[in-house]
Design a protein around this nucleic acid. Structure first.
Length: 449
RNA sequence: CGGGGUAUAGCUCAGCUUGGUAGAGCACUGGUUUUGGGAACCAGGGGUCGCAUGUUCGAAUCCUGCUGCCCCGACCA
C-alpha cells in the first residue's frame, strides 16, 4: 500500500475525550472514529488490525476442532423468553420492534440462538461432541461505555459453544477451548493469564478469565509470577489427546480475579517473591454451565441406552474489539504504538525521505515491489513530507520495522533499518534490505510454532 | 441511574465576566524556497458559535428548557 493512496487520518494533537493511552493512540493513529457513545467506526488501519486478530482467532479455533458459522445480530425475543433471560437481562439488552410489532433484540450474546440451532439438527449422542463458534457484532447497552473500544456498547466478539453428552466430555471440550485460548493469546502477542473467575449471570461452575496485566486494567487481579513464564502448547498439539495435563499445569498455580479472591488469598497461596497483585484487562472468558440452557430449551439427545438427556454445554468468548486496545495497553511507548508482528497493520514501513527525487524514488519503488512479491505486508510512505513528520507517523502507527531510504543512503548504497520496539537502528547495504526484512519478519509471525 | 464537567473551523483552544454581527495555532488549497526526527515565507478557503425559547434595537456572550459528549461510582466481553 502506498500512503499517498491510503486513508490514514492521523492526529497530531491529543484528542481531549480520550483518557487511557490505548484510546488516545487509536484515535491519533487514525484507527477508529467515535460515532456515538460506545459506538465506533473502524477506519482502514484499525480495521486491518481487527482482521488480523480475527484471522488468528479463527485459525486457532479451527485447529481446536471448533466449526465456524454466522448467526444474525437481531434475534427474536421469543427465544429469550424460553430461557427466561428476556426479563432477566435488564436494560443492557437493546429491545426493538419490527414493522409488525414483533419483539426483537440486538444480541448481547448467543446462547439461546445456538441452542435453538443445535436442537433443530442434533438428536443423537453420536453427533457429539460439537463445538460451534461465530464472530459477530454484539450490543450491550452499558450504563457507562468508556475507554474507546475497550468498553464499547457495540463490540465484535468471538463466541464458541460446546455441546457434550455428559460432564466428563464437557470438561474435555472446555479444555480444548482453554488450550486454544493459550495459543490464541500467544499468537496475538499478549501474555494472557487464565485466572479463576466468577461465573456471572450466565451461570455454571467452571470458569476462567484470561487476563492481560496492564496499569489501566479495570479489575484487580492476583497471581503467581511463574505464570508469566509458562510454555505455550505448540502448533503440533493433538487436541483429541489428553489436554488435562496442560490445563492442570496452568491452573495449579494461584491466579484469581478480585471477584473470587483477595490479597489475603494471594499471601496464603503464593511465596512472597512470586506474588503479583496488579490491574488486569479481561480479554477472554471460558464458562462451563452444563444444562442451564439446554434443559429449559429442550436441547436433548438420545444416549446409547435410548434415553433422552439434556446436553452439557459451555460458552467461550473473546472480545476482538477489546483485544486491539489491550494489545496497545501492553505494548506502546511515548511515541506511539508498538505492534507485535502477528497483528501489525503492516509488517514494515518503507520510508522514502525524498519522494520528489527520482533516483531515491526508483530505489524505493524497486524495494517496495520486491517486498510485496515476497508476501511481506509493506506500506510505502511515498508522501512528499518532511523527514520528521514521516518518522513521527511511522512511530505513532507502530509498524514493527522501518526501512528508511534517503538521497544520502542511495549515494552510499545503504538503507537504514529501524526496529520500532527497541529503537535500534542499523545501516544495511541496499541490496540486502529485502532479505534482511524477510529474515526478521517471517520467523516471528508466530504462525508456525 | 446519582455526582462533576464540557459544547466556538477537521483538531487543540481563545473570545463570554462587562451584549455590537467570530479569532489563533495546527490541518487544508495555490505558489516559492527547503528537506535524515512533526520546515519557512507569501496568498487563500473554511464556522446554523450543540438545539430551542426568551430578554434586547442588537446574543457566541444574559435567562429558561433540552440534547450530545467526557470524567468519578454501581454494571459488564
Amino acid at each position: 500500500m502506498r500512503l499517498t493512496k491510503y486513508f490514514l487520518p492521523v492526529l497530531k494533537e491529543e484528542p481531549k475525550e480520550a483518557e487511557i493511552v490505548s484510546h488516545r493512540l487509536m484515535l491519533r493513529a487514525g484507527m477508529i472514529r467515535q460515532q456515538a457513545s460506545g459506538i465506533y467506526s473502524w477506519l482502514p488501519l484499525g480495521y486491518k488490525v481487527l482482521q488480523k486478530v480475527q484471522r488468528i482467532i479463527e485459525e486457532e479455533q479451527n485447529r481446536a476442532g471448533a466449526i465456524e458459522l454466522l448467526m444474525p445480530t437481531l434475534q427474536p425475543a421469543d427465544l429469550w423468553r424460553e430461557s427466561g433471560r428476556y426479563d432477566a437481562y435488564g436494560k443492557e439488552m437493546l429491545r426493538i420492534k419490527d414493522r409488525s410489532d414483533r419483539d426483537l433484540i440486538y444480541g448481547p450474546t448467543n446462547e439461546e440462538m445456538i441452542t435453538d440451532i443445535f436442537r433443530s439438527a442434533i438428536k443423537s449422542y453420536k453427533d457429539l461432541p460439537l463445538i460451534l463458534y461465530h464472530i459477530q457484532w454484539k450490543f450491550r447497552d452499558e450504563i457507562r461505555p468508556r475507554f474507546g473500544t475497550m468498553r464499547s456498547r457495540e463490540f465484535l466478539m468471538k463466541d464458541a459453544y460446546t455441546f457434550d453428552l455428559n460432564q466428563e466430555n464437557a470438561v474435555k471440550s472446555y479444555n480444548k477451548m482453554f488450550v486454544s485460548y493459550l495459543r490464541t493469546f500467544y499468537r496475538l502477542g499478549i501474555p494472557a493469564i487464565p485466572m479463576r473467575a466468577e461465573t456471572g449471570p450466565i451461570g455454571g461452575d467452571l470458569s476462567h478469565e484470561f487476563i492481560v496485566l496492564a496499569k489501566t486494567g479495570e479489575s484487580e487481579v492476583f497471581c503467581h509470577a511463574d505464570l508469566l513464564e509458562k510454555n505455550i502448547p505448540s502448533i503440533d498439539l493433538d487436541y483429541d489427546g489428553d489436554l488435562s495435563k496442560i490445563v492442570d499445569d496452568w491452573t495449579s498455580l494461584f491466579a484469581a480475579t478480585e471477584d473470587v479472591a483477595s490479597e489475603e488469598d494471594l499471601i496464603a497461596n503464593v511465596p512472597s517473591d512470586k506474588r503479583i497483585s496488579a490491574r488486569g484487562i479481561e480479554v477472554g472468558q471460558t464458562f462451563y454451565f452444563a444444562d442451564k440452557y439446554s434443559k429449559p430449551m429442550g436441547a436433548d439427545v438420545t444416549d446409547s441406552n435410548g434415553k433422552q438427556v439434556s446436553v452439557f454445554c459451555g460458552s467461550y468468548g473473546i472480545g476482538l474489539t477489546r483485544i486491539v486496545p489491550a494489545i496497545i495497553e501492553a505494548s506502546h511507548d511515548e511515541n506511539g504504538i508498538i505492534w507485535p508482528i502477528s497483528v501489525a497493520p503492516f509488517e514494515v514501513i518503507l520510508i522514502n525521505l525524498r519522494a520528489k527525487d527520482d533516483e531515491c524514488s526508483n530505489v524505493c519503488q524497486d524495494i517496495y515491489n520486491k517486498l510485496k512479491k515476497a508476501n511481506i505486508d509493506v506500506v510505502y510512505d511515498d508522501r512528499d513530507q518532511g523527514a520528521g513528520a514521516k518518522f513521527a507517523t511511522a512511530d505513532l502507527i507502530g509498524i514493527p520495522l522501518q526501512l528508511i531510504i534517503g538521497p544520502r543512503g542511495v549515494k552510499s548504497g545503504e538503507a537504514e533499518l529501524k526496529i520500532r520496539k527497541s529503537g535500534e537502528k542499523e545501516n544495511i547495504p541496499l541490496e540486502n534490505a529485502v532479505q534482511k526484512i524477510i529474515d526478521l519478519i517471517v520467523p516471528n509471525r508466530r504462525d508456525k510454532d
